[in-house]
Write a protein that binds this DNA or RNA. Structure first.
Length: 641
DNA sequence: CTGGAGCGTCTTTTT
DNA sequence: GACGCTCCAG
């Protein structure tokens, strides 16, 4: 491919970011400055310069971003792009671990535990340690552990830092939690990163292999990397220092997940020889929108100095709507969308809010007006009970030691195997040194089970091991269908009649996606991994004729002609739990900045003077951030107009 | 011991 | 709406 094609249509700064080959590169890419284009072109450029595709690692945070990057690279390069590793931190690490752990005497078939599984496991841990989950809420303990893992602290390192009584208890829980994870051959999200770093650190020959393999590393959304991810990229780039990171400190919105904004602020200290390229020309929004967003975010202290500009002078003012009630606010938004629908495609209109719980009232309002919508909710589909059940059946087929999956499905549908029977079966497996499926199959040897329980357990065990035996030759969708049919799960739902039709449809949909996945060459184990790592937004279809709603977080990387930022109130944005900490407050401000910069042409900010709270109606006040927007950019409306 | 009914709790953001 | 917990009938 001629170099001109790769550089076509780029501005001088973008060209510089694409072509610079002299080592570490920091690309400060403001919102709407063509970040993905630069990443895509850079990969294409590297390949056009003779770099083998297989030696390029392009890391993103979300599957959606990875997918987009991949499609765009493919659109540019066709077949030649296929060897590029364009994936998320988590899937890249899972892939490396699965390949390398077996050589180090450990299992490469681990199951990935999602947050739901983690809570279940932690409940068991706390029970065993005799800690009340009132004083030690599982989610809180898990958060502390997650933070430790983000900072590459295993249980032992954590113990050294544990000073308070609470922390010593967390340490105990951490230790037992890790032991249980190891026993059931599972890893949580944070383990994937931490274990990879640990493996690299203690096995220099493995690290060297990947340093040689990945001669060029690109990291997207660098401002969102945590310590472990930072360390991972640093290790991989240590030998050749060909690391290009793209990010925007103003769009760092994941510190709650351990992201450390100093990774980007201090990149120049880590790599003193690095080149810095600032992309400040915005191709998305009007100047009015950019000015509004700038005036908000420039109140932050911890940020790099920069300001976006555009050739699109002026633009319509930002509408600020003061509503009487939450319902009134939603009605206003739905009404505006109805009016706008004749001018812009519905799919280019978005409603963004701080918390998922806020979606309901807008769903109702849009439904009332007959406006189609789709919700960018975190993981709604994959979180539905029956989808998780199905995933757990499949998990048990792939990993017969997965006790979390086992306990979830062993009595679903009811097989007369209650908690007491489950304890006996799990105990039997532990004592005899066999896995859980084998324990089921040999249930007749377990003392204390009743005759019917033994028969049911044995039947279930034989069914699952029978399916597992065919694992190598059967595609994922056949295995999924078999396991759901033969264990009686699907027949049970079908017998419930009309009440369960929706669930059955969901399961059919899951089987279809398994088929699509299998036809693309994926294995069952990979499908199981996908179910843990993928979320709903990854399947968001932007061509569908429907307006979009989602959290501010889920809107990152998207753009719309018209954006409604709703619930602009103290307690919602900034969120009540972020209001008394100055760092968290800055993050809330960045969140608003991200939301505002999603809009191309029209931006609405709405709030209500009263709102239905968990305990009755409450009075609310307008968000402090509104006063940071210059008055002349606003067109204020109220319900009385 | 199991399964079902009923009750309270929870939802900040996500891989 | 899902989940955990408690209580009670079988």
């Amino acid at each position: 491919m001629p170099e001109n094609d790769v550089l076509q249509g780029l501005n001088p700064k973008q060209v510089e970011a694409v072509r610079y080959m002299g080592g570490p590169l920091l690309i400060l890419a403001g919102a709407g400055s063509g970040k993905t284009t630069v990443l895509t072109r850079r990969v294409a450029y590297l390949i056009s310069q003779g770099v083998p595709p297989g030696s390029i690692l392009a890391i993103t945070f979300t599957n959606k971003a990875a997918k987009e990057l991949k499609t765009r690279i493919e659109a540019f390069l066709g077949e030649r792009a296929s060897g590029v590793w364009a994936m998320t931190f988590h899937s890249a690490c899972a892939r490396i671990l699965r390949a390398e752990l077996p050589g180090l005497g450990r299992s490469g078939r681990f199951t990935i535990m999602d947050s739901d599984d983690q809570v279940k496991l932690m409940r068991k841990v706390l029970k065993e340690l005799d800690l009340s989950d009132k004083q030690y809420p599982p989610s809180g303990v898990l958060k502390a552990i997650s933070r430790a893992k983000d900072n590459l602290m295993g249980p032992r390192e954590y113990a050294k830092r544990a000073v308070t009584f609470y922390e010593t208890k967390v340490h105990q829980a951490y230790e037992l939690y890790q032991r249980k994870l190891r026993e059931l051959d599972g890893m949580d999200f944070d383990d994937l990163i931490m274990e990879t770093v640990m493996m690299f650190r203690s096995n220099p020959q493995v690290l060297a292999k990947y340093q040689r393999k990945f001669a060029h590393i690109l990291v997207d959304e660098y401002q969102d990397t945590n310590r472990a991810q930072y360390e991972l990229t640093k290790l991989l780039a240590a030998a050749h220092r060909n690391i290009a990171v793209v990010g925007d400190d103003d769009q760092s919105i994941y510190t709650f997940r351990g992201a450390d904004i100093s990774n980007i602020l201090e990149f120049e200290d880590d790599y003193p020889e690095c080149r810095v390229v600032k992309l400040e020309q915005n191709y998305r929004s009007t100047q009015v929108i950019l000015d509004g967003a700038f005036h908000v975010v420039s109140n932050n202290i911890r940020r790099k100095d920069k300001r976006l500009w555009t050739v699109q002078e002026g633009g319509a003012p930002i509408t600020l709507y003061a509503a009487q009630s939450g319902e009134d606010e939603a009605r206003f938004v739905a009404g505006e969308i109805d009016n706008l629908a004749s001018q812009v495609p519905l799919s280019s209109i978005a409603i963004l809010y701080r918390t998922n719980a806020q979606s309901r009232i807008y769903e109702d309002a849009l439904r009332n007006r007959g406006i189609p919508y789709s919700v960018l909710s975190g993981r709604r589909f994959y979180d539905r009970k029956h989808i998780k059940d199905a995933a757990c059946y499949l998990r048990l087929v792939v990993n017969p030691r997965d006790v979390v999956a086992f306990e979830r499905i062993v009595n679903e549908p009811a097989r007369g195997l209650g908690p007491a029977a489950v304890r006996k079966i799990v105990g039997h497996a532990a004592v005899s040194g066999i896995d859980l499926v084998q324990a089921l199959s040999s249930a007749k040897d377990i003392k204390g089970l009743t005759g019917p329980q033994k028969r049911e357990a044995e039947k279930l065990g034989n069914t699952i091991s029978g399916i597992a035996l065919k694992a190598l030759e059967q595609p994922a969708h056949i295995m999924l269908k078999d396991v759901l049919e033969m264990t009686g799960y699907l027949p049970y739902l079908e017998a419930q009649g009309t009440t369960e039709l929706e669930r059955i449809d969901d399961l059919r949909e899951l089987i279809v996606s398994a088929r699509v996945f299998a036809e693309a060459g994926g294995t069952t184990q990979e499908f199981v991994e996908l179910l843990a790592l993928v979320s709903d937004q990854d399947t968001y279809d932007e061509t569908k004729d429907a307006c979009v709603m989602g959290t501010l977080h889920s809107a990152k990387g998207l753009e719309f002609d018209v954006v409604f930022l709703v619930g602009m109130e103290e307690g919602l944005l900034p969120h009540i739990r972020s209001m008394d900490d100055e760092y968290q407050l800055e993050e809330e401000r960045r969140l608003l900045y991200v939301g505002m910069t999603r809009a191309k042409r029209l931006l609405y900010l709405t709030f209500s003077w009263s709102r239905e709270m968990s305990m009755g109606l409450g009075r609310s006040t307008v968000s402090r951030f509104i006063s940071e927007i210059p008055r002349e950019l606003l067109d204020v409306k109220t319900w009385e107009d």
